[in-house]
Amino acid sequence: MRLNENTLLLGKKVVLVPYTAEHVPRYHEWMKSEELQRLTASEPLTLEQEYSMQRSWREDVDKCTFIVLDAEKWQVRPSTTEDSCMAGDVNLFLTDLGDPSLGEIEVMIAEPSCRGKGFGTEAVLMMMSYGVTKLGLTKFEAKIGQGNEPSIRMFRKLHFEQVAVNSVFQEVTLRLTMNEHERQWLLEQTSHVEEKCYIDGSSESH
């Protein structure tokens, strides 16, 4: 999605930046992990396929993707490169043609050293806030493997409720509808987030 190609979102624990070609080699290394393939229901891709995927995600109007960076590491740039700050990614899929106000959200904290620190929670909150304020979304769904208890617990803490179980794909669907109360709660949770202009690995305040 080109809407966010120049957008950087700065939180307390994580920084969200657009998925660029610079991030592909590290992302490709992550996705060689059988555990991540299982958790994300993904097939391993060649490096060239990964570059092609990155380009299509940039162009597709129904996908909004940010790379999740470790904010603490990112703050000490330029002594560290952006790819060395990478922690995972967070995505919104706007694939329900009958309901443009619904976004399917998923998050992956791929870097083992970055897990269990609240990165995923803040990334999801920031992405939901972006979806509400920039994309006009009012409903979110998350489809999670039944065995992925940490992810299910995280989404439940964020007020998502289980609405379906698919025994064939062994996944549960959780949903959150943004009424006025939930919207205010979400905006309060993300009131610290700063939006900056992202240009090729650097940022400038709006």
Rank of each mutant, 00 (worst) to 15 (best):
D89K: 04
P112C: 02
K117D: 01
E161D: 08
S52D: 15
I109P: 02
G147A: 13
F66V: 10
T133P: 02
F160Q: 02
L187T: 07
T173F: 09
H206G: 09
K12Y: 03
A71K: 14
L47S: 07
V107C: 07
L69H: 06
E141Y: 05
K32S: 14
A87Y: 06
F93A: 09
K13Y: 02
L39A: 09
T80Y: 13
S84T: 15
E122V: 04
D200M: 08
D96K: 10
E106Y: 03
E22N: 11
R183G: 00
T177Y: 08
S203F: 08
G147S: 10
A71W: 04
T177M: 09
C85V: 10
L186W: 04
T7I: 14
P78A: 01
F169E: 14
M31R: 10
K134P: 04
F155H: 12
E82W: 08
S167H: 14
T46S: 15
G98E: 11
K134T: 11
T177V: 13
L92E: 02
L47D: 04
L39D: 06
Y130L: 15
R55H: 10
F160E: 00
S79M: 11
F155A: 02
H159C: 03
E48L: 12
V61N: 05
E106S: 11
G103N: 03
D70T: 05
L176N: 03
W57P: 06
E122C: 01
V15A: 13
N179F: 09
H23D: 09
R38A: 13
Q162V: 08
C85G: 03
Q170P: 01
V14T: 13
R2N: 12
P18Q: 00
R58C: 10
Q170H: 08
L3Q: 11
N4F: 12
S202L: 12
A87S: 15
I67N: 02
N166L: 07
L3V: 12
T46P: 11
P112N: 00
A41I: 13
W185R: 14
E122P: 01
Q189A: 10
M126K: 04
M53V: 09
E34M: 11
W185K: 09
V76M: 11
R38C: 06
R156L: 10
K12Q: 14
N148Y: 12
K139F: 02
T190Y: 03
H192C: 05
V61D: 15
K157I: 03
M86V: 15
R55T: 13
L187D: 07
V76L: 08
S151K: 04
L16K: 01
K73S: 07
V132K: 01
L45F: 13
E194Q: 14
L135M: 14
A87H: 03
K12S: 13
V168C: 02
I109C: 00
D89C: 09
K32F: 05
G136F: 06
L135W: 04
E82I: 15
I199A: 06
L94V: 04
T173A: 07
